[in-house]
């Protein structure tokens, strides 16, 4: 397989996953903004959401007020925002076009029709319930692509690069969501959170589509410690950090089997794994949640660099 093909498959999956995450973040930001507004319509939730996506500075250069209309336009349609849904879908489709021959027709068709549908949407008509509908649609685009991939893609090296891209992006995203609100998760003396805390916790869980499944796992009210544990260390939670790195490890092992040798990606992933396996929330809180997440994001990025190096991305 061409190094460029591997690279395109890797990024294609990352962009689709990113589009999904951006849609989810925006949906949460929108919900929250309905209940707690600041003066002038700006919402601090929307601002922290922009910060989590690392596009807050770009946003401020273009818009004065972080209200729903501005933020949703920016996060959905802005061509200059590399993390907007539009940019993600276009980048995914461009990558897909480059590796058209490496994809199954089901995968290609899901991306192609997603882009064609998205391109026909009039940004001015996406307010209120239409906005929520559109954001759900973005998630189904991701699900459709992933479904096509899982049910039609040959389990070879191309599959492996797609999966690694997908889960590197997901881990990055979950870590950023946690980091966005890490301060509300810190252990405090008042054991019962107030309404403000509950709202913030819900936001975090919703952003990871975890607010309902949380109950199944913990059978308990929302607690900061549990929430952090859930998104970092619970192996059954499909958006947790440990779940993502587990998937990355298994996929790297698959590559090892195909290519007959370990690459630098294994070592980089092992470092991330070491941060999670056998670790506990007590130790993570003692270490410092923010520092832990910052280190995680950086080490997770190194996986990308390492596999780019060992499998000739360029």
């Amino acid at each position: 397989m061409l190094g460029r093909t591997a690279q395109n498959l890797f990024w294609l999956s990352r962009y689709i996953e990113r589009a999904e995450n951006m849609a989810r973040l925006l949906e949460v930001g929108y919900r929250m903004s309905l209940t707690s507004q600041r003066e002038g319509g700006a919402s601090e939730h929307l601002v922290s959401m922009l910060r989590a996506a690392e596009v807050d500075e770009d946003f401020e250069r273009k818009h004065e007020v972080a209200d729903v209309a501005n933020v949703s336009q920016f996060m959905l349609f802005d061509e200059t925002n590399p993390s907007s849904v539009r940019s993600c879908l276009l980048a995914a489709r461009t990558n897909a076009r480059s590796v058209r021959t490496a994809l199954t027709s089901d995968m290609w068709e899901s991306l192609n029709s997603a882009w064609l549908e998205f391109a026909s949407i009039d940004p001015r008509e996406t307010t209120g319930s239409r906005l929520v509908e559109l954001l759900r649609w973005v998630r189904t685009v991701s699900h459709r692509y992933r479904g096509a991939l899982l049910s039609t893609f040959l389990r070879d090296d191309g599959y492996a690069f797609s999966q690694i891209g997908n889960f590197v992006e997901r881990a990055d995203n979950t870590a950023r969501i946690l980091d966005m609100k890490y301060y509300v998760l810190l252990p405090r003396t008042d054991l019962i959170g107030g309404d403000v805390d509950i709202q913030q916790w819900t936001l975090i869980l919703r952003a990871a589509s975890a607010h309902r499944s949380y109950r199944h796992v913990y059978h308990d009210r929302f607690k900061a410690w549990n929430i952090a544990d859930y998104l970092i260390l619970r192996p059954e939670m499909p958006r947790s950090l440990i779940f993502s790195i587990g998937w990355i490890n298994r996929t790297l092992d698959m590559l090892e089997e195909i290519y007959g040798g370990k690459g630098a990606g294994h070592a980089a992933a092992a470092e991330v794994t070491a941060m999670l396996e056998g670790n506990s929330m007590d130790r993570i809180f003692a270490y410092g949640l923010h520092d832990f997440l910052t280190e995680f994001i950086s080490k997770n990025n190194q996986i990308t660099e390492a596999i780019a190096e060992s499998y000739n991305f360029y």
């Binding site: 061409l2 190094g3 460029r4 058209r100 021959t101 499998y311 360029y314």
Partner: peptide, 22 residues
């Protein structure tokens, strides 16, 4: 294989493509 120029290179007078395994 569908290649762009950047996927190919010439070494010792022969043409090669850059693959994930070299």
């Amino acid at each position: 294989e569908l290649c762009e120029g950047q996927d190919l290179f010439v070494e010792n007078g022969k043409v090669y493509m850059r693959t994930t395994t070299g």
